[in-house]
Simulated assay, not measured.
Amino acid sequence: MKKTRPAEEQSPKEELSRSARKDLTRAGLTQAALQLMGEGRSFTSLGIREIAREAGMVPNAFYRHFRNTDELGLALVEEVGITLRRLLREARQGGVAPGDIVRRSVQVYHQYVLQNRLLFLFISSERSGGSRILRLAIRNDVTHFTNEMAQDFRHLGLYKDLSTRSLQMICGLIVTTMLAVAPEILDLPPNQPLLEAEMTENFVQQLQVVLLGATLWKEKVRAID
C-alpha cells in the first residue's frame, strides 16, 4: 500500500500543482458569476448554488474559496483595481512624454475595458447599486487609485504649485471621468473604427479639459490669497 507523505515532505512541484488547481477553481467561480451577469442578471440576485452550478462545481467548492457572494464580489473589485492601477502606472511612467501621457493612458484603459467587458459591467452595475459592501469597496478603490495618481504626478513634477488636496481633487475628477466612460466603451458597436476613434478623441479631450482646469485652479488659489 502506497503511503502518503506528510505535507512538509511533499515536493514544491506537488505544492505548486495544488496551488494552481486552487487558483483555477477560484477563477472558475468568479468567471461563472460574471457569465451570469453577462446574461443580464444583477450580481445581488446571484445565489451560491447557481454560481457553483454555472462553474460545474458543487456548492461546497464555493465555500472553500468564499464565505458568501459579497466576498466573491470583493475579489472581483480587487482584481480590477490592482491590474488597472498597474497598467496605468506603467503608461504614465514608461518613458512617455508628459504631453502624451493622457492619450497613452486612454489607449491602455480603452483596451483593458474591451478585454474585460464582464468585469466592467459588474463594476458599473455595483458602483451605484446592489450591495453596500461592494459600493464601499469600489469607492475605497477609487480613492486608492486617485491618491496613487496624485503621487505619480508629484513624481513626474507635474502641477508643482498645487496643494496635495487640490491635486487629489483633480485626480479624482480624472478617475470619475474614466469610470463614467466605461459603459460608453462597452456599448460601442463592434467593427466601427471611426466611431471608436471619435469616442477615444472625445475621452482624451475631456481629460485634457480637466488638466487645463488644474492650471487655472492654481491661478485662482493665488488670487484668493
Rank of each mutant, 00 (worst) to 15 (best):
T4V: 11
R5K: 15
E8N: 11
E9S: 14
E14Y: 08
E15P: 00
L16H: 11
L16R: 14
S17P: 02
R18G: 09
S19K: 13
T25E: 11
G28K: 04
L29E: 00
Q31Y: 01
A32S: 07
A32E: 01
A33F: 01
M37G: 07
S42Q: 14
S45P: 05
I48W: 00
E54Q: 15
R64K: 12
N68S: 14
T69L: 07
T69P: 01
T69H: 01
E71N: 08
L72V: 04
L74I: 07
A75S: 15
V77Q: 03
V80N: 07
L84P: 00
R89A: 12
R92E: 10
G95S: 08
A97Q: 12
P98C: 05
V102N: 02
V102Q: 04
Q107G: 06
Y109E: 05
L114E: 13
Q115M: 10
N116E: 06
L118K: 06
E126D: 07
S128M: 06
R132M: 07
R135C: 04
L136P: 02
N140C: 06
T143F: 12
H144A: 13
H144I: 09
H144E: 15
N147R: 15
M149R: 10
M149Q: 12
D152R: 05
H155R: 14
G157L: 08
Y159G: 08
K160G: 10
L162R: 06
C171K: 00
T176Q: 15
M178A: 10
A180C: 04
P183W: 06
P183H: 08
I185K: 02
I185H: 04
L188T: 07
P189H: 05
P189N: 07
L194F: 11
L194E: 14
L194Y: 09
L195P: 02
E198C: 11
E201W: 06
F203N: 00
V204Y: 08
V204S: 02
Q206H: 09
Q206G: 10
L211K: 03
L212A: 13
G213A: 09
A214G: 10
A214T: 04
W217M: 13
K218M: 09
E219P: 02
E219A: 11
V221I: 12
I224L: 14
